[in-house]
Simulated scan of single mutants.
Amino acid sequence: MRKFKSLLVAFVLVIFATSTLLAGCAKKTEEPAKQEETKKIKVGLVFDVGGRGDKSFNDAAYAGLERAQKEFGDKIEVKYLEPLAGGENREQLLRLLARDKYDLVFGVGFMFTDAIAKVAKDFPETKFALIDGYVPDLKEDSNITCLLFKEHEGSFLVGAAAALKSKTGKIGFVGGMKIPLIEKFEAGYIAGAKYINPNIQVLSDYIGTTGDAFKDPVKGKELTLKQIKNGADVIYHASGASGVGVIEAAASQKKFVIGVDSDQSLTAPEAQRPYILTSMLKRVDTAVFETIKSMVENNFKGGYKEFGLKENGVGYAENEFNKDLIADIKPRLEEIKTKIINGEIKVPTSKKEIK
């Protein structure tokens, strides 16, 4: 009997020790699993008409998304969507991302304004970033931030560059959709040119009155050739993917052309590069990256954020292809840039203000 009791006690001790050992192992294997479950911030972006590959506005937004993915790859996951050709499903795509519980959703372009205002009300937990659009009465605790740019400041600089390089005293502007936003580009360009030469003539044309005007390179080419025929020897475009036709036409006639939004000489065919004087940089990439960064750092704020020359949100391009082209005018452009930043030059936002 005593022997049986001893065996029973020994058996219980073995069972207890084994249970404790297994529990300890289980605890150790659970801890790494918890570390792996760190929730990533989901970032969605919806392009506007023209989509990725427009070599302009949409591509600039994608560059910001790409930069964020490289820098915060372990903290975020990203997805981008393209609308139908006419852009009529913008709201549907925004809702799709919000329903899929994306934490931050971008709408690339002012055409998203109404859609984002509507969808943001239905998904208060989702943050929305509207590029180039304005939703009134936003506050810091709003779930919408409007990313705005001082396009007129950058356009003033390239307008000055055009006037400094023009030999005919005539320069051109080709806009996409005729709306106040694109007229800001035109106003800054005219003002900058006239700052250099009050007597310069600026020929202006718009491709259309709908969103399709930003994806019509054939019309862009046609208007550029018309302006060149009428004496313009430097052409600036603010027309999205339509600008492909503008650049092609100017280069074919061996006239200078000024790109927009991104540094367009970097993506242009080699034969066109000698004629791309510069590009008016609109740092949509910076705005996208900084907004994602604010989410990663848990510092997102609703309301309005504006990017001008002072914030390095706009400017003019200089690279290996155009460095020599602008070498003689760069000191003057830098002088003008400083005066704008310091407030010595007030850049108009519309043609009415130019006077």
Rank of each mutant, 00 (worst) to 15 (best):
D205I: 00
M295G: 00
K305N: 05
E153G: 14
F321W: 11
E186T: 05
M1E: 12
G169T: 09
I200E: 06
K194I: 04
S142H: 10
K121R: 14
G133M: 01
E71Q: 15
K150V: 08
Y189C: 06
P180D: 05
T224I: 00
I171K: 03
P32A: 12
R52V: 09
K101R: 12
T209R: 02
I116M: 14
V347P: 07
F47S: 14
L84C: 00
I190G: 06
D285P: 04
F300W: 10
Y80Q: 10
L104G: 10
D328L: 00
Y275N: 02
P274D: 04
S56L: 01
A249H: 04
Y102I: 09
K178Y: 05
G220W: 05
Y275V: 02
A26C: 09
L181E: 08
N299E: 13
D212V: 07
I131E: 11
F4M: 10
K127C: 11
L130A: 09
G107K: 05
K167A: 10
E290D: 15
D263E: 15
L147W: 09
A60D: 12
K3M: 09
S279D: 11
I15F: 12
I354C: 10
D122W: 08
D324Y: 01
A327L: 07
N342Y: 00
R67G: 05
E31H: 03
G172P: 02
G220N: 06
L104K: 02
T29C: 00
K40A: 11
G175K: 03
H152A: 15
E353W: 05
Y236G: 01
I336T: 13
L325A: 15
F110L: 07
A163M: 01
M111V: 14
P124K: 02
G133A: 05
E222Y: 08
P348V: 14
Q35E: 14
D216A: 14
E125H: 10
L93H: 08
D59C: 08
A129Y: 01
Y62G: 02
G87A: 07
R332C: 00
Q264P: 00
G240Q: 01
L147T: 13
S252T: 02
S350F: 02
S56R: 06
K5Y: 15
V244F: 07
S350D: 12
K165T: 15
I200T: 07
K70D: 15
A268F: 06
L309M: 05
M1F: 09
E306C: 02
A161F: 12
P180V: 01
E335Q: 13
E186C: 11
S155H: 08
F11Q: 07
P198Q: 04
K40H: 10
D74N: 15
F256L: 12
K118F: 07
V119G: 06
R332H: 10
